[in-house]
Design a protein around this nucleic acid. Structure first.
Lengths: 139, 139
DNA sequence: GTAACTGCAAAATATTTGCATCCTT
DNA sequence: AAGGATGCAAATATTTTGCAGTTAC
C-alpha cells in the first residue's frame, strides 16, 4: 500500500517533498475545489510562496486544474485519473458553484454536452459552470 | 438619436457622468470582453479607483457581466439587451477564449445546451467557456 | 554531489477604504 | 441644495522575484 500522494508525484516525475505531499493530501481530503486561501489555511505550516509555486507546478503537470468561476475567485481541484493519463487535460464534467456556501463541486455524473463551434474555431478545452444552491444548503 | 451609453445609464437609473459614459463606450467599441487592465488603458483619463467602482456598479445593475476564464483573469462584457430587461441576468451563449491572442469572444450564435442537475440542486446561472484557437489566429 | 525545492525578505501589483471636493439632478 | 460620484492618499491584500540554505535522489 503506497501513499497516494507519493504515487501521484511519482507518475508526474516530481520529487517527493513534504510540502507537495501535504498539498495533495489537502486536495484528496477536500470535498470541494479549493481557493489558494483555503490551501494556505489547511497547509499553514508551509510558506505562502511555496504554495504558489507548488500549485503552479501542479497545474503545469496536470495534477490539478483550475475551475473558472464567475465570482472572481480561482478554484483548484485535483484532476481525475483519466485526465492525467492522456497528457492532455480534459475535464468533461460540469462544475457547480453554490451561491450560498461558496463551495465549488464537481458534478462527476453530469457530462458536458457537445456543441458545434462556428467555422474557423478549434476547441482545446471546454468548461461548464452552473451557479445556484447546492443540495446541502437547500436542505 | 440619443447617445447609446446615456440610454443604458438611464435605463439603469444611474446618473450620467463622463467616466461612466466613457467606460460604456469602451465596451461598445470593443470586439471582445475586457479585463480591468484593458479598461484602464482605454479610459486612462480616469482614476483606477473610479474604474473599480464603476465596474462594480455596472455588475450590480446588470449592465455588464463577468466571464469566467481558466487563465486566472476576469473579463467583463456588456450584457445583451435581453439579459438586462428581465432584471435577472442570464447569458445563454457560449464564450470563447483564444489561447493564442488571449481574446475572449461572445459566440452569440452558439447557445448553451440544457443539462439536468442531480436532485437537490437548483440552477441560477450557467456558463460555458471554450478554449482554443480563434478564427483570426488560425487564418 | 548536484539539481531542484523551500523559506525569508522584498519588490511589484492589485484591490479596498476614507475623506474632501466636485458634479448631477 | 443634497446626494451621489470622483480623485487622491493610504491601507491592505495578492502575486512575483531573488537569493541563500536545505533536501531529494
Amino acid at each position: 500500500m503506497v501513499n497516494q500522494a507519493e504515487s501521484i508525484l511519482k507518475s508526474s516525475a516530481l520529487s517527493i517533498t513534504s510540502s507537495r505531499k501535504k498539498i495533495i493530501d489537502v486536495f484528496l481530503s477536500a470535498s470541494t475545489a479549493l481557493a489558494h486561501q483555503d490551501i494556505e489555511k489547511l497547509a499553514d505550516q508551509y510558506d505562502r510562496v511555496t504554495i504558489y509555486r507548488t500549485l503552479q507546478t501542479f497545474l503545469e503537470r496536470g495534477i490539478i486544474h483550475t475551475i473558472p468561476t464567475t465570482d472572481n475567485t480561482i478554484k483548484y481541484a485535483l484532476c481525475s485519473d483519466d485526465c492525467i493519463s492522456s497528457g492532455h487535460h480534459h475535464d468533461n464534467h460540469v462544475h457547480f458553484l453554490c451561491d450560498q456556501c461558496g463551495r465549488t463541486l464537481c458534478l462527476d455524473d453530469v457530462m458536458i454536452p457537445a456543441i458545434t463551434l462556428p467555422k474557423g474555431y478549434s476547441m482545446k478545452a471546454i468548461n461548464m459552470v452552473v451557479n445556484g444552491i447546492c443540495k446541502l444548503c437547500r436542505a
